[in-house]
C-alpha cells in the first residue's frame, strides 16, 4: 500500500505517527544513504553506521514535523548525510545509546552487489592499449588523481580523462556490462 506513495506522501504520514510509512521511508532511503556512505567513507561498515545515524535523525525530524516542505524529503536526507559524514570525520564517537535502542530496525537489507568474473576482467584489461592499461592500473590501484597519473605518464590531464573513459567503455563492452 505504501510502495506506490511518493516521498512527499510519506513525510506527513510519519508526522502523524504512521509506523508503516516510517518503515517504507527507511526501506527506500536506506540503500541510497548507503551508496552516499560508500562514496564518502569508503567502508561498508562505516556506510552501515551512516545509514543508521541518518535514518535516526530523519525519523526524529519527521516525527516532530520539522520538515516543512514534504516534497524535499530526499534533499533533507542528503543534507543530513552530508552533516553526519562531517561529524563522523570530526570524531569517531558513535551514538551508541541511540543505536542500541533503535539500531536493529534501521539496518536495511543490503542491495545485492553485482559480481564480475575476475579472470575475464584480467583478460579484458590485457586487451587494452598500453596507455589505457597504465592509466587504468594507476587510477584504480590507489585512486590516483588525473593530475598524478598525468604527471607520472608524461601526458596531459585531459588526455588521462579521455583515455580512462575510453578504456572503461571498452572494459564494459568486453565484460558485457550494460550501464
Amino acid at each position: 500500500m505504501y510502495v506506490g506513495l511518493s516521498d512527499a506522501d510519506l513525510a506527513p504520514r510519519i508526522a502523524d505517527g504512521d509506523s508503516e510509512a516510517e518503515a517504507e521511508m527507511c526501506r527506500r532511503m536506506g540503500p541510497r544513504i548507503r551508496l552516499y556512505g560508500l562514496r564518502h567513507l569508503r567502508s561498508s561498515s562505516a556506510a552501515d553506521d551512516l545509514v543508521q545515524q541518518v535514518l535516526l535523525k530523519v525519523i526524529e525530524a519527521l516525527r516532530a514535523a520539522r520538515l516543512r516542505e514534504s516534497d524535499k524529503l530526499a534533499h533533507f536526507v542528503l543534507g543530513t548525510c552530508r552533516m553526519v559524514v562531517v561529524e563522523l570525520r570530526r570524531s569517531s564517537h558513535r551514538q551508541e545509546a541511540l543505536l542500541a535502542k533503535f539500531g536493529g530496525d534501521l539496518i536495511p537489507e543490503a542491495s545485492p552487489t553485482p559480481t564480475l568474473d575476475d579472470r575475464q576482467l584480467a583478460r579484458c584489461v590485457q586487451t587494452l592499449k598500453e596507455r589505457e592499461r597504465s592509466v587504468v592500473v594507476m587510477t584504480f590501484y590507489d585512486e590516483h588523481t588525473a593530475a598524478e597519473t598525468a604527471r607520472s605518464l608524461g601526458i596531459s590531464e585531459a588526455n588521462v580523462r579521455v583515455i580512462r573513459h575510453r578504456a572503461m567503455a571498452q572494459l564494459r563492452d568486453c565484460l558485457g556490462v550494460t550501464l
Partner: peptide
C-alpha cells in the same frame, strides 16, 4: 575488481 586486479601484480603494464 579493477583495484584488486591492479594490486595483484598479475598484469604486465608500464607504471610510474
Amino acid at each position: 575488481s579493477l583495484r584488486t586486479l591492479a594490486r595483484s601484480g598479475s598484469l604486465t603494464v608500464v607504471v610510474s
